[in-house]
Design a binder for these strands. Structure first.
Lengths: 225, 225
DNA sequence: TCACCGATGGTGGATTCCACCACGACACCT
DNA sequence: AGGTGTCGTGGTGGAATCCACCATCGGTGA
């Protein structure tokens, strides 16, 4: 909405950080934000690690974060930031419209979740809402989440059953990463990854690692990053 | 917006169509193109079907196409356009840096392939190159493709240098069958299958069985078109 | 004939998988 | 406070698989 009554000129613009691994998306966001005189992009990052450092150093008012950052899933970034105490507001943008991620992100401390598909011009709306202290969700997504909550049905493909960690590992498997590589990337023991694999297999009713890999590859293709 | 008549220095601006299902990416591209006085975005589309109609109607000089369009994979779009005869140049942008996709796209008639990751500022470079009649590839991608061609064997996906047996087994792998299952189904020794796997890996320049499985799954998916 | 390749199969060592277990942290219930 | 559950992290040991060589046999082409 255009209820900008307390527009205190451009003396103190609201500072926004953008975290996305696609330069094009960053530029698209920046272009939109540039249309608003009281908003300003203060810094950008392409991966969660540098993003965390950057945000802690620059202390923006709002951070726009992509779910699917190449290493370390963005979920960790949101968790870390929300654990920081008086951190920025966090608006998550995603290529997935999965209720799956929205729920997790909000639980992890995000203040809004917008799908890249749905935002014809609604990012700004989302930004305003989040800055005002509200929780913002893409319209379609909000509806699906609501109807899902009513019917109690949660079975997209059984993936809801996976915990955050498990889902993250599932995603990495889908990208073609082997157990060893995942362990290295996440700084975890190989045994831990294997343990997670096993739990994932159990929850998804998969017999062997081959079926798991297959499922993961298929899924990451369908809901592309 | 910034659709001002710029015909002062350039009588005939080059007209570009953008096809991507993410509005943000479209805007990012448009923002970059807007910095060039002789280039102009003439139309946009979010899905392959409307894109095809649009491009045939508007006849742009260049079409920038995302691989990962929701329905119909963008590959079909490129094929259709290149089958049209005197169609536009086609530059493919992708979230994947997979050699696989690049190769298929180029063979389908695309004139360039850029990864969304790599393009810090190089889309314009790519656009220029493609318009000039060259074939453009992301630097990293070009390098990998080249080294692949030098080291091992040249190959469209390399699949045509598989023997009949190997191709058959490759397909079964793609369907999710394990080595043991394949052996049983073909009434062969497990060792034989493993031997074939090894040969396939060698011919396709794949390091481990995981990559093989991944490649096989991808292929059996994309070959539905 | 000879050299090569495709299909089949093997050996042995490295790697990975997998079932089962364990412990600490945290949440939720009553 | 206790009890129960799940989550994340690790481990062990045996089974399965992978993988780099190697071998045989039959066909095909120089």
């Amino acid at each position: 909405m255009s209820a900008m009554s307390e527009q205190t000129s451009v003396a103190q613009p609201i500072r926004i950080a953008i975290v996305d691994d696609h330069p094009l998306v960053r530029e698209g966001l920046a272009a939109r934000i540039a249309t608003q005189p009281d908003l300003r992009v203060c810094c950008e990052a392409a991966d969660p690690d540098s993003a965390l450092a950057m945000i802690r150093a620059r202390r923006p008012d709002l951070a726009i974060v992509d779910v699917a950052l190449k290493q370390g899933s963005g979920l960790d970034l949101v968790k870390a930031l929300s654990g920081d105490g008086n951190g920025p507001k966090m608006l998550v943008v995603s290529a997935y419209d999965e209720e799956l991620f929205a729920e997790r992100m909000l639980r992890a401390g995000a203040h809004g979740y917008v799908n890249k598909q749905e935002l014809h011009g609604s990012v700004l709306e989302a930004i305003r809402a989040v800055l005002a202290g509200e929780i913002y969700l893409s319209p379609g997504l909000a509806q699906r989440l609501a109807s899902q909550a009513v019917s109690g049905r949660r079975s997209a493909q059984g993936l809801e059953l996976l915990s955050d960690r498990e889902l993250q590992i599932f995603e990495l498997i889908g990208r073609g990463a082997g157990t060893r590589a995942i362990a290295a990337q996440l700084h975890l023991s190989v045994h831990t990854i294997e343990s997670h694999r096993e739990h994932i297999r159990a929850k998804l009713n998969l017999r062997n690692g081959t079926e798991l890999l297959r499922r993961a590859v298929l899924w990451t293709l369908e809901s592309r990053a």
